[in-house]
Design a protein around this nucleic acid. Structure first.
Length: 588
RNA sequence: GCACUUGUAGCUCAAUUGGAUAGAGCACCUGACUACGGAUCAGGAGGUUAGGGGUUCGACUCCCUUCAAGUGCACCA
């Protein structure tokens, strides 16, 4: 719609002898209840037109109608100039823009962006919160790639630390040599089981010490199991062979389990980083910052940065004993990642409980003048809550990722069988379909919401399959495919039609917006933008489908045209869902 | 206590970034081709956009304030 903006700029220049920036022209979609497709808000122009908004609108509308052959009619209501673009233009858009294979495939923009997501701990299986993280990270990567970025997907695995030692210790104490093979348990679930067992033992010991007269805090410090776990961590850091071997073994179990979960989720990574390799990084940056005065040293030797001029606190970046803190490590890792990829932008998909940490991290990197520091972004998302309250993995009150996915498939199976349409499907196609639908419902449910908002997930009510859902959109796609195959559809952009019905025009208008929608979603790092657009498209298509007969169209030309329109809709629905990481079936 | 985030129909979410009468889905009520797939479509009812004040042609959106919820404020990660 840039040609409208350009023409409007010229109109204002011509009519009112005033130069305005193209950005000052606010175009919007015309609301359904009015005639037209494009609306210009004329209030801002009344300052220099020195006329009322209606008259200004009429003058600009008259100019546009005379200058542009694409402008058919216009009407003005209050300060809104509603423009009707000719059907000829829209039909041309369908044939020349939408129908070709390269529609909405952006040219490479020469920029590289890193998306870091998932970033699990290796002491427990993934849960619902991780699912939100993974889906967001994967979808945003897809969207950025569609917008022309060169995307690197990165997973920073938290594979060391006291929490890992807890699982290891509990396994030594209670495990009797249990392995994934011997128990039949998925590796990450096996390790997670011992993490819970550790916590139980720890709690029991705390209670015992309290009954012997210790305070809560004392008991937490003095419980034998926690002391042992701490010793184990020290041995790990010292490279003790026995501890390292156990650590490697148990981590391998977990990785095998994660690989399965990632596969089910349909996410993947280009590069893994492990904290066991990066946790000592960052000290050279501390040195650098001390030298150029960004950091300062206190009397006890600890190193700090004063962020009070920026409205934040003083923040510790190195302990007095010279060892790292979380921030030290993250500074070092940021540097490492930049050295490896030299990316223009770097997106961290991390929960909103770390908002402050990332604010500080990015600020420090900028103060240090690090390359790429201006392209940092924390994609912060809200927690997923259960009706019963928060999920706590130590206490086992979590919605497990694998369980949930299985449950979604089962529900999809029940729904699908009740419809009775798949009886003729081969068994493996059925299984594939249940997975596609179940995951479609789950993914759409989690991604249609603005990432910032917290999400309430009720496992009992589960996820809907009707209305504003993934399966609704998948169904629309399958239905279009069914019609196309009945008609033996072939792409053809030479069907001469001159006039559009209302729904047909609405549909084309919506389809032309797809590239802009991808751009907007990429700028905001928001899959929700795509999700809502695809839903709108599916709804509009269904409306068209009910109002207009395709195979029984009034004549052959109309039938062929509607087939092109249907195929285009199916393509955009499919691509849009793909940006969300959701598959669409050919039939369901 | 301080900081950040959120608050829209009974419930789950939108609202083109300051634009028209705040839109969808679920749930509730009424209807729809004797089959291009009813996991659909059309309609009804449901709102003091948490409360109050301000800014302007215009405010869910910006500013101030009160309230509610969540998160963060470790020489933990």
């Amino acid at each position: 719609m840039n040609f409208i903006i350009d023409a409007a700029v010229k109109a204002i220049k011509h009519l009112y002898q005033t130069d305005v920036e193209p950005a000052a022209i606010s175009l919007q979609e015309t609301r359904k209840e009015f005639e037209g497709q494009i609306t210009i808000v004329t209030f801002p122009f009344t300052k220099f037109s020195r006329k009322g908004p209606e008259q200004t609108g009429n003058e600009i509308g008259e100019y546009l109608k005379n200058e542009l052959k694409e402008v058919g009619e216009f009407n003005v209501i209050k300060g809104f100039l509603n423009i009707s673009i000719t059907d000829e233009y829209w039909i041309g858009q369908l044939y020349n823009q939408i129908l070709p294979d390269d529609f909405a495939i952006a040219k490479p923009n020469g920029q590289k962006v890193m998306v870091e997501y998932s970033s699990p701990n290796t002491n427990k299986p993934l849960h619902l919160g991780h699912i939100r993280n993974n889906l967001l990270g994967y979808s945003v990567s897809q969207i950025l790639a569609a917008a022309g970025y060169d995307v690197v997907k990165v997973n920073l695995v938290n594979d060391r630390g006291i929490h890992i030692c807890k699982s290891m210790l509990a396994w030594q104490m209670f495990g009797n040599g249990e392995t994934p093979q011997s128990s039949g348990l998925k590796g990450d679930h096996l390790v997670g089981k011992y993490y819970v067992l550790f916590d139980k033992a720890y709690k029991a010991q705390i209670e015992e010490l309290k009954s012997e007269g210790q305070t809560e805090d004392e008991a937490k410090k003095n419980a034998p199991v926690i002391k042992e776990a701490q010793q184990m961590l020290q041995k790990w850091e010292a490279g003790d062979k026995e501890v390292i071997d156990l650590w490697k073994t148990m981590n391998e179990w977990v990785y095998a389990g994660f690989a399965e979960t990632y596969k089910q989720l349909g996410v993947n990574f280009d590069k893994y980083y492990y904290e066991s390799n990066t946790y000592l990084l960052g000290k050279d940056i501390i040195e650098e910052g001390l030298q150029n005065g960004v950091f300062f040293k206190k009397a006890d030797g600890s190193v700090w940065i004063d962020l009070t001029p920026d409205g934040l606190d003083e923040k510790l970046v190195l302990r007095s004993d010279g060892t790292s803190v979380y921030m030290t490590q993250d500074l070092g890792t940021a540097q490492l990642k930049y050295n490896d990829f030299h990316m223009d932008k770097s997106i961290y998909v991390v929960g909103n409980e770390q908002d402050y940490h990332f604010k500080v991290l990015f600020l420090i990197l900028r103060k240090l003048g690090k390359a790429g520091a201006d392209g940092l972004f924390h994609l912060s998302y809200g927690m997923v809550d259960l009706p019963s309250g928060k999920m706590k993995s130590r206490e086992g009150t979590v919605v497990d990722a694998d369980d949930l996915m299985l449950e979604m498939e089962t529900t999809a199976k029940q729904h699908t069988e009740a419809m009775g349409k798949v009886d003729v499907f081969a068994e493996d196609e059925k299984l594939q379909l249940y997975h596609t639908i179940g995951m479609g419902a789950l993914k759409y449910f989690l991604l249609k919401v603005d990432p910032k908002k917290r999400l309430l997930f009720d496992p009992n009510e589960s996820v809907d399959f009707q209305g504003h859902t993934g399966p609704f959109i998948q169904y629309t796609h399958a239905r279009i495919k069914s019609v196309l195959s009945r008609a033996d559809y072939q792409p053809n952009s030479n069907i001469e039609i001159t006039e559009l019905a209302g729904v047909e025009r609405d549909l084309i208008v919506l389809l032309t917006q797809f590239p802009e929608v991808i751009g907007a979603a990429a700028n905001e790092y928001s899959p929700a933008v795509i999700a809502n657009y695809v839903y709108e498209l599916a709804k509009t298509y269904n409306k068209f489908y009910h109002e207009k007969s395709i195979l029984q169209a009034e004549d052959e030309i109309l039938k062929q045209f509607r087939l092109q329109l249907s195929a285009s809709s199916a393509k955009v629905i499919s691509r849009g869902m793909n940006l969300l990481g959701i598959d669409v079936p050919e039939r369901m």
